[in-house]
């Protein structure tokens, strides 16, 4: 474990807590894409298949349970909690996210480190996580301005992968033959997808005005 990875995990944890806080306290999921949340449930479900078979550390297992639990409960809230479900704008959140999964599963079947069920599922979850934010970013473009909590959620979610990139660089230089191109490239793509959001988020923070995304 290194400081970059810990910072990444804490930033990731903060992002899901901010979203849960928003949904649980003000009972609203306005501006949040259910499609992205559903994709994250699939990302964690396929990423942590080995949660009961391979034990790395208490920390590792605890964080996996937190990410699985939080992503499932966010989807549950948005789908089945009456008050929250009412604030979900279904008309705008229309990204065909199942079409995102198909290329990811095909790519995972083609490009992976080992052709085993676990490895292909794990690789699929990496590719899917890289694009999982797209429905959310599309929704933001449509609804234009976003509330602070949703903005913070996306900012933290994008930031965590940025910390992971620093972690990969650190591990590359400190651990012999630590080379994982698949992880590095999908992580880089994921972070780049947030780039324009980061730009407008920073602008709104600098000018201290509400976050407005261009049409």
């Amino acid at each position: 474990m290194n400081i970059f990875r810990l910072a990444g995990d804490m930033t990731h944890l903060a992002s899901v807590l901010v979203l849960l806080l928003k949904i649980h306290t003000i009972k609203s999921c306005a501006g949040v894409s259910l499609k992205t949340q559903e994709l994250y449930v699939i990302v964690f479900a396929t990423r942590y298949l080995d949660i009961f078979t391979s034990f790395v550390s208490i920390y590792n297992s605890l964080m996996k349970l937190i990410f699985l639990g939080s992503s499932f409960s966010i989807v549950w809230y948005m789908r089945y909690h009456k008050a929250v479900h009412r604030t979900y704008d279904r008309e705008q959140d229309t990204f065909r996210h199942w079409f995102l999964m198909l290329p990811c599963i095909l790519l995972a079947l083609l490009i992976h480190e080992k052709f085993t069920f676990f490895e292909v599922m794990w690789t699929f979850s990496l590719y899917l996580e890289a694009v999982a934010i797209l429905p959310q970013l599309v929704l933001l473009q449509r609804t234009r301005n976003i509330d602070n909590l949703t903005g913070q959620y996306i900012f933290l979610l994008g930031g965590y992968r940025g910390f992971y990139i620093l972690n990969w660089i650190y591990r590359y230089f400190t651990e012999p033959h630590y080379v994982h191109w698949i992880t590095w490239i999908s992580g880089l793509v994921q972070t780049l997808l947030y780039a324009d959001f980061f730009y407008y988020y920073f602008l709104s923070w600098k000018n201290n005005k509400k976050l407005q995304l261009p049409a």
Binding site: R47, D50, S57, K64, W122, Y164, H177, Y178, H180, T183
Partner: peptide, 10 residues
């Protein structure tokens, strides 16, 4: 963590 695995990451 041994270098050649990254399954220790979340």
């Amino acid at each position: 963590e041994d270098g050649d695995s990254n399954k220790d990451e979340l």
